[in-house]
Design a protein around this nucleic acid. Structure first.
Length: 279
DNA sequence: ATTAATGTTCAGAA
DNA sequence: TTTCTGAACATTAA
């Protein structure tokens, strides 16, 4: 489920070993598993990237961006179960990409590992990058989004606020887990229509977004019970121990008296909230 | 043993 | 134009 905090953790985790290194090669499915979707084809990507220096490892919403010295961007999208790993992959059969580095200091390779295989990898030339991953596709990053940006977007849709928050053009980086946690922190019922929220309420959501995501980054993201998400060294995150409502249906609300956490379905995804303190 | 559920995104339909 | 549905895939729980 890598959302913003998990992708930020991945990026930080591989950054020190990868930035400034030369990419010797990128190899698809080194263990002959089913290949992930790669655009364009792997052969032309190899031709273009072999020998190039990786100038920066960056996060773009829920994507990992490798920026090369000629301005090319190789963008990995972990989707549901993808991980960027510097070492110790959980198993061999779900390794989807291997990045071989030059013989200098630090690790000799890093990997993209993806159990379900829904992840993607795309090469963008520098001009393409801005236009293909620009504001038509991604809204403001959840950590940087201003009140005005929140307000304009909320006013412009009748969708439930929880559903709108999952739309990456509305706000980029929030996923199903953190949407529930943010709305609980904000005391806002997930089913409320975005265009009916007051300014004060929208500001509470904005503040809670920054607080929750920052906190989750500090704990290196959430590792769920199925163990999908891990950091760059294949270790558990810690934020799952701080979830207030996610996957806690039937338990008492941890922040109010008398509330019991409920699970409902919105847009075919689980939503968790406390009916007592989220209005 | 079959079915539902699980994080995300996108194409295609309403 | 905006919003909704189902599919991509692997694995676990009921």
């Amino acid at each position: 489920m890598p959302e913003l905090p998990e992708v930020e953790t991945m990026v930080r985790g591989i950054r020190k070993g990868v930035e400034g290194r030369r990419l010797e090669d990128v190899v698809g499915c080194p263990t002959h598993c089913k290949p992930i979707r790669i655009t364009p084809n792997l052969r032309s990507i190899q031709r273009r990237l072999r020998g190039r220096s990786i100038e920066a490892v960056e996060r773009l919403a829920k994507r990992v961006v490798l920026r090369f010295d000629n301005g090319d961007r190789f963008v990995v999208e972990p989707r549901m179960t993808g991980l960027m790993l510097l070492s110790d992959p959980p198993d061999e059969e779900h390794l989807r990409l291997r990045f071989d580095l030059d013989g200098g200091m630090g690790p000799a390779a890093f990997w993209f590992w993806d159990r379900r295989g829904l992840g993607t990898a795309t090469l963008y030339k520098s001009e393409e990058f801005a236009e293909r991953l620009g504001t038509r596709v991604l809204g403001p990053d959840a950590l940087a989004m201003t009140f005005d940006e929140w307000w304009v977007r909320c006013r412009s849709t009748t969708r439930a606020i929880k559903v709108a928050m999952l739309d990456q053009r509305f706000v980029a980086g929030i996923g199903n887990l953190y949407a529930s946690e943010i709305l609980h922190r904000s005391s806002v019922r997930p089913t409320r229509r975005a265009n009916r929220l007051s300014k004060a309420t929208v500001e509470r959501i904005r503040t809670a977004t920054v607080d929750i995501l920052t906190d989750a980054i500090r704990y290196e993201g959430s590792t769920l019970s199925d163990g999908t998400y891990r950091n760059a060294l294949n270790q558990d995150g810690g934020y799952q121990n701080h979830h207030r409502v996610y996957a806690r249906a039937g338990e008492p609300c941890p922040t109010c008296t008398g509330g019991v956490v409920r699970r409902i379905v919105q847009a075919q995804r689980s939503t968790f909230f406390c009916p007592a303190c989220q209005r």
